[in-house]
Design a protein around this nucleic acid. Sequence first.
DNA 1: AGGTGTACGTTCAATCCCTGAACAAGGGAG
DNA 2: CTCCCTTGTTCAGGGATTGAACGTACACCT
Lengths: 380, 380
Amino acid sequence: MANSLTALRETNRRLITETVRKSGALTQAQLARQTGLSPATVSTIVRELRDAGLVEISQAGGRRHLISPARETGLVVGVDFGHSHLRVALAERSHRVLAEEAMPFDVGARAPEGLAAAERLIIGLLGRAGVSRAEIKAVGLGLPGPIDPETGIMGSSTILPGWAGVDPAAELGRRLGVPVVVDNDANLGALAEATWGAAKGRREVAYMKIGTGVGASILINGLLYRGATGTAGELGHITIDENGRLCRCGNRGCLETLAGGQQLIDLVRPTHGPVTVSRLVELAHGGDIGCRRVIADAGRHLGVAVASLCNILNPGLVVIGGALAEAGPLLIEPIMTVVGRLAIPSAARAVNVVKGELGERAGVLGALARVQTPNVESAL
Amino acid sequence: MANSLTALRETNRRLITETVRKSGALTQAQLARQTGLSPATVSTIVRELRDAGLVEISQAGGRRHLISPARETGLVVGVDFGHSHLRVALAERSHRVLAEEAMPFDVGARAPEGLAAAERLIIGLLGRAGVSRAEIKAVGLGLPGPIDPETGIMGSSTILPGWAGVDPAAELGRRLGVPVVVDNDANLGALAEATWGAAKGRREVAYMKIGTGVGASILINGLLYRGATGTAGELGHITIDENGRLCRCGNRGCLETLAGGQQLIDLVRPTHGPVTVSRLVELAHGGDIGCRRVIADAGRHLGVAVASLCNILNPGLVVIGGALAEAGPLLIEPIMTVVGRLAIPSAARAVNVVKGELGERAGVLGALARVQTPNVESAL
DNA sequence: AGGTGTACGTTCAATCCCTGAACAAGGGAG
DNA sequence: CTCCCTTGTTCAGGGATTGAACGTACACCT
C-alpha cells in the first residue's frame, strides 16, 4: 500500500533520482545533505539505482563518486498533427531533443491516411537519426480536436471530420508496437511551454493556442487540469457575442468565431485574397494596416476571455501560443488593454500575458513531455 | 527527517486521525479498509491515539470497537458579518455545533463598532452556553469584502466602507485573546457547503453566493483556491455587458450589477417599494409575476457567468448560496437554461447546479470550518 | 437451542527500512 | 611526512508494517 515500508523506500528512491536529475552530478555526501537522508541510506539506494541502470557512477578523486543521471536507453517520439503540418520529434526520456522533422499535411485527410503518414515520417526520422525502432519506448500524439478522456476516442469536429470515432492512440500504437498517449494540441502546448518555454519552472499556467481555432489549457501544480469530463480550459468557446456567428461547437458567438485564425483569414480575404495565418501576421509586421486592425480586434476579443479567466482563476501568467501569437505585441497589447478594463483590478495587475517561446514546435515538444507527465485527475 | 520511519508512523497516525474525524465513528476494520493499512497497524496506532487522548473508543457489540474523534477540549467560534446580520456560532473542533445566535446589524457601522458588537455577542453566547472564555481556542471570521491575502488587511469596498485599512483578524484577536483567521463570506460559504451541505464529501466545488452582491469561490481538492493574488473565484465581476452600469469594483457591467440583490431591489422599488432580497424571494414564491421576472432575469445573467466557469473549469457541481438562492428553481432553472445554451455541450452536460443547503447559516458555519482548513496556496 | 460461519481486534514472528557509529581510504595543509 | 578532514561503506540496533494465527462474540440457519 501507499504507506508501507517499501513505499517509503520507493519515495526515497524517487527523491534521490529527482535530486540527481535536477542537479546533474553530485557526490553521495552532497546528496545526503540535500535530501536530508543519512549517508548510509544514500549509499544503499545509490547502489540500487546503479544496479537498476537509473544513474551512472564515476570516480572523482578520493573516495568521491560522482552520481549522474543515466543516459537513459529508451527514446520517445512526439507526433503533432496541425492544420497544415505534421511534425515529429525524437528525444531522450530526459527531454533532450535529438531530431525533429515536419511535412506539409492536409488536415482534410482521414485518420488512416494521417496515421500512415505519421508512421512513415517517424520511420524516416529514425533512419536518418540512426536509431533502431526497438529503442522507442513510447509515443506522444497531439491532435487538434476533442478526445474523450475516458475512452481516448475522438469526438466529432469540423476540423478533423475524418477522425470521429477512431481511437488514434490505439491505432498508432498497433502500427508502431509501442504505447501511445494522445492529447489535444492545447494541452500539449501548455506542457511544452511549462517544460522548455515561457512558463518554465512555473507549475501554474494558463495557456491559449490561437491557430485556426482557439484552444486553451490549464496547468495546476504542473499537471493538466481536465475538470469533470475533460473539457476544462475550453476558453475558445466562451461566449463573447450571444448573437454572433455559429461555432463548430454548436453555440453562437464563441471566442473562436471572433478570434480564431479562420475568422481572421475570412476577414481579410476580400482585400488581400486567400492567406494563411502566418502570412497574415507577416503582413501585419510589414505594416499592413488592415491586417494589424484584424489582429488587434482579435486581441480585444481574446482579452474578454482572458479577463474572465483572470476573475475565475487569478493567474499570474498566461502564455499565448499558436500561429497568431507570432504577431507578438500587435496581439498581446490589445489583450492586456482589455484585461485591464474588464478584469477586476487586483487580478488584472497580477497577470502577465506573454507570447509562447516555442512557436510551432510547441505541439511536438508537448507530445514529448506528455509521455511522462501524468494528469491531475480531479472532477471539480 | 521527513523520510524516516518515525515520520512514516506520523503520517499514518495523521491519516487515521483524519479519517476518523471525517467519518465520525468507525470500527477498526473499516478504518483499515479505508486507509489501506493493515488491521495490525491500525490496532497499534489506535491504541497510541487513545493513550494520547486524540480518539475515544467505545465498545459496540462483538469485539467491535467504535473509534470516534475525541471530544476535543478546545472549542471554536465562528463569526459572520452579513449585510444586515451578525451571526456567531460555537462548535467543538470536531465540527459539532453547540450553539448559534444572530442579531441585526447595520453594515454601515465602522469596524470598531462592528468588532465590539461581535465581541459582545460572543461573550453572551458563551455565557448562555455555559462555556468559559478560556475554552475558546480559535475564532473564524467572515466578512463580505476583499481581504489582502498577504497582510489580512481589508481593501476598500463600497459595501464595507468603514473597514478599509483595518486588520480585523488582529483586532478581534486582540479583543478576545485568541488567534483569529479571517476570510471572505463566499470562501466560507463554499467551505461550509463542502463540510455539511450540498457539496458534502466533494473536494472540487464551485460556489456562488448571491446576496446583496455576488461572490464566488472555488475549492480544488477540498482546499480554497485563491490564485496568484487571492482573487480567484471572483465570478461576481465577470463582465456581462461591457456598456452596463458602473460596478463597485470600478468596471462596468459586472455580473453583480445585473444579478446582485441590490440591483433586483432597485428594479422592483418603483412597483413594490423598498424590499429586502428575502422579501423579494417571498413575493416571487407567492406568485408575484414581477418579482419572478426579475429573479429569472438575474438567473439568466448568472447563467452567462456559470457558462464561462464551465468552459474554463468544467465543474461537476456548482452550488448556489446566498439569500437569492432561496428562490430555488425560479433562479436555478434559468441558470441551467443559459448554461445549456452558452457552455460547450459536454461541459454543460457534466455540470449540476444546485441550491446550497445551509441557507443564511453558511457563513458562520464556514467560519467554523475555516479555522481548521488550510489554504491551497498556488499561484496560477 | 445448538451449531456453524463470519467478522473483528490482538498478538507475534518475520521482514524491511533508516540511522548512528565505527572504519577504511584518500586528498590537502602545514 | 603527519595530521586532519571528508567520503563512502559496513554493521548492529531500533522502528514500523505486515501476514498469519488466534480468541471472541454476534448472526444466521436448522
